[in-house]
């Protein structure tokens, strides 16, 4: 008897439930993922602003410094949480990464412009420090976006190659 006959006789498993197909839909949902991307970006920016204030304001009272430290810890916790969700629970697929990258570039560019505007108007060192943080974040966002585009293009190219090899070009 062939291996295939044996397999057919032994592998009469059930069909997937509607719950599972619903799970797949949830895993493909863009909205939930982008919520966590937004949370990540906002938490990063908040942490950047508070860090800039802390570093540039002279002679802060102890209780203010403690307050800043607590707020930075909270911000970093949210960053960690959002990163964990995006890498373990609601993993970003190739097209999601592009959208997330665009969001990151937009958010960080706005943050940078805002910090520069405040710095220009007030001349405060904290605003310029925040702008420096903004530059770093913007560069990181651009790198992430470029990486997302490269990955998407690589996958599309691989898909076309496989479809050609498998004779599925008409699909």
């Amino acid at each position: 008897m062939s291996k295939k006959d044996f397999s057919t006789a032994l592998s009469s498993g059930p069909t997937p439930s509607a719950v599972l197909l619903h799970l797949a839909d949830a895993q493909l949902s863009l909205r939930g993922r982008l919520g966590y991307v937004a949370l990540l970006l906002v938490a990063l920016m908040m942490t950047g602003v508070i860090g800039s204030l802390w570093l540039t304001e002279p002679a802060l009272p102890m209780r203010t410094q403690v307050g800043f430290a607590v707020m930075i810890a909270i911000g970093l916790s949210w960053v960690t949480f959002a990163l964990w969700v995006l890498t373990h629970r609601q993993v970003l697929l190739a097209p999601h990464r592009i959208v997330a990258g665009r969001m990151a570039v937009t958010f960080t560019a706005l943050f940078l412009m805002g910090a520069l505007a405040v710095g220009y108007q007030t001349g405060g060192a904290a605003a310029y420090a925040a702008a420096a943080v903004g530059v770093v974040m913007l560069v990181g966002a651009v790198v992430i976006l470029m990486g997302a585009h490269r990955r998407f293009a690589r996958l599309m190219q691989r898909r076309e190659t496989l479809e050609r090899e498998l004779g599925r070009t008409g699909k």
């Binding site: 498993g13 069909t15 797949a24 697929l93 097209p95 498998l166």
Partner: peptide
């Protein structure tokens, strides 16, 4: 198999459905 995976990684819903329909039974078994 790779074609199916690539389509899933590109976020194509029919590919996910195909993946589940194809492998649910064997994995359950």
């Amino acid at each position: 198999d790779e074609w199916l995976v690539v389509r899933c990684q590109l976020g194509e819903r029919p590919a996910f459905e195909e993946l589940i329909q194809r492998w649910y039974g064997p994995l359950w078994t």
